[in-house]
């Protein structure tokens, strides 16, 4: 599903984001990406989402070379990936329903299908009854669940999350991670970046550890 071949990312300032990274994630896997902040976790996710281009090497997602994707094809590529962010990136002036519906509206689905799928996604994260509320009226954990609902509403084959529990206490963090686990069980390839090692010890699962832009440990 995801394959990095000798990927190096050097930023304009000269610092290395990634150095000679080789990793692979198979279809249907759940993989945690760990390491200290600044180790290159975010850079790796950005390369997958075509938010950055690699300086050297190949980033393959579903067999396509993302680093060489023409700008016109980037939106279609992003529509195939569900992304979850540490600060959830919800639009504060839109109700929960509209926030979750946005990927479907971008994809051009009909109104009925949008309603059906948004309700299903909100049901999955347990927030169906809150669909008319504004994001500001929800707790941080609930907002993150809305972010996850938005990421999975278009039924992507790949889900990537950048520090999704970064702002949550251990209890809520575990809840969110279990939610990712359930989504993975229905076949969504999931890649989660986190530096919360204590949480990972409770969850298990395959880990890839980065340090200073290099892979220092990759489970099989």
């Amino acid at each position: 599903m995801i394959r990095f071949e000798n990927v190096t990312k050097r930023y304009a300032g000269g610092q290395d984001g990634l150095r000679e990274v080789n990793i692979g994630v198979e279809q249907g896997e759940l993989v945690f990406l760990t390491g200290h902040s600044g180790a290159g976790k975010s850079t790796l996710l950005k390369l997958i989402g075509a938010l950055e281009r690699p300086t050297r090497g190949q980033v393959l997602v579903g067999g396509r070379n993302i680093g060489r994707l023409p700008p016109r094809q980037i939106p279609a590529h992003r529509r195939q990936i569900g992304m979850v962010f540490q600060d959830h990136k919800l639009l504060p002036d839109r109700p929960i329903f509209d926030n979750v519906a946005l990927p479907l509206i971008i994809a051009g689905l009909g109104q009925r299908e949008v309603q059906r799928r948004v309700r299903a996604a909100l049901d999955q994260v347990g927030l169906l009854k809150r669909e008319r509320q504004q994001p500001g009226t929800l707790s941080t954990g609930e907002q993150q669940r809305v972010g996850i609902a938005r990421a999975v509403v278009s039924r992507p084959r790949l889900l990537i999350a950048d520090e999704p529990t970064g702002n949550l206490d251990p209890e809520l963090s575990l809840e969110i991670m279990q939610l990712f686990g359930r989504l993975n069980e229905v076949g969504v390839t999931t890649l989660i970046a986190t530096h919360d090692l204590a949480l990972l010890d409770r969850l298990g699962g395959r880990r890839i550890t980065l340090s200073k832009g290099q892979v220092v440990r990759a489970d099989n």
């Binding site: 989402g49 938010l51 195939q80 990136k89 971008i106």
Partner: peptide, 10 residues
Amino acid sequence: EVSKLLGASD
């Protein structure tokens, strides 16, 4: 920004 992140075309 969010729309572009979610794959909105130009």
